[in-house]
Design a protein around this nucleic acid. Structure first.
Lengths: 215, 215
DNA sequence: TAGATTGTTAATCGATTAACAATC
DNA sequence: TAGATTGTTAATCGATTAACAATC
């Protein structure tokens, strides 16, 4: 009973659909056609219908899509109806910023623990969660049903931390360290390489200026 | 003298090449073939050669690529030889985390100012940069040659802030607010939608588990 | 029923990979 | 020169868009 694999291109668009549908829902909109949604989101109606049809028919001919139903279904596809416990490894500025971000909780991502090797930070709290020393990382992951580790430590320690996490049963790593982690198959890694993103922006600024300069 | 447009797919890979080449350079590696680089980076050698050839020939038949030269050239393509002054709009946890991140400076991104509407924060400093009230935003952007604004405010205020920034001559917005900004053509926007990224991770965890469950 | 709009197949477009001639 | 490896063209693959029959 082989399901056809959904491309990551499609998956990457789902959160954006989810966001727009959530907003429509909040505005009290009951139904929407692929045509109207396409104008709102600035993508083709064709793409919208193709994307949704990867998961089966959510719409109805002659009617369109029911906003609330579609919103819920996409949420389920994204796994937002489940709980995912996460920890943050690295209690620097970025780690604390992510720990303080409340919206993840709303989507089922539960902040369970935070770790840092700096003794100065250990014992302090971020949103009610105590910062623990790295020595406690392994047992904590094993004993608290942790699915996701957020890696916000410098690149030097990232690979070693990832290995520990994997050995103790983590399922996924949200990686903010500026390295490509080497993990066994089946462990999900999502990279957020902020400086890469900034470099792209830099390229596009210069490209546009050169274009304007008539080159 | 029309330059052929380089696809964003290629641009998106440049920072990663840049990172690997920087590491090779630091290790003292002088030259590398597309074949060796392909094994290191886990992409095809063909793609590497195609990517580089978008910008003209950086290599030499029979020899490969000179690491340092290639590193420098990619840096130039990404505009890292230029200065880009930036400000951060929103002095919350995330804004402060980005302000404290030193590595941007190394790449030519200079942290010039920070803004927040909370009077409690105004006057405080982040890495030597004073937090200013939002009222000063417009004049500051105009008078200090600011290219890039980092938007780390809640989505509610983001669209209005973007509009102000654009009116005062900003060239690019690095957008961490969870909205799609509507800016005039020529203004570069790079979105970092953290919760979208987390949702993708969530999808992939569940997908893998379902696969394993034999479904 | 007639009109609207999906679900889905077919056509197109673009990106990736393979192959090989050019050349260092 | 012979061997290695690029630059580049051609083939393949996958993703997007267009078209339209199915159907609400």
């Amino acid at each position: 009973m082989e399901e056809k694999e959904i491309s990551q291109a499609v998956i990457g668009r789902l959160p954006r659909y989810f966001r727009y549908l959530g907003e429509l829902k909040d505005e009290g909109v009951e139904r929407i056609s692929s045509q109207d949604l396409s104008e709102l989101m600035k993508v083709t109606a064709s793409q919208i219908r193709q994307d949704f049809n990867n998961f089966g028919g959510f719409g109805q001919q002659g009617y369109g899509y029911n906003v609330e139903y579609l919103y819920d279904e996409i949420g389920k596809i994204l796994g937002l109806n489940r709980r995912h416990n996460f920890i943050i490894v690295g209690a620097g500025n970025l780690g604390r910023a992510l720990g303080n971000y409340m919206n993840f909780e709303r989507r089922g991502f539960i902040f369970k623990g935070m770790f840092d090797r700096d003794p100065e930070l250990v014992g302090k709290c971020v949103r009610g969660v105590e910062i623990m020393p790295m020595e406690k990382l392994n047992s904590f992951v094993r004993e608290n049903d942790i699915d996701i580790a957020v890696l916000t430590i410098p690149k030097a320690g990232a690979e070693a931390a990832a290995e520990q996490l994997v050995q103790n049963g983590i399922k996924a790593i949200w990686n903010f360290a500026h390295v490509d982690l080497n993990v066994p198959e089946g462990i999900q890694v999502e990279n957020v390489h902020l400086s890469d993103s900034l470099m792209k922006l830099s390229y596009n600024i210069d490209r546009y200026e050169n274009e304007q300069a008539g080159k």
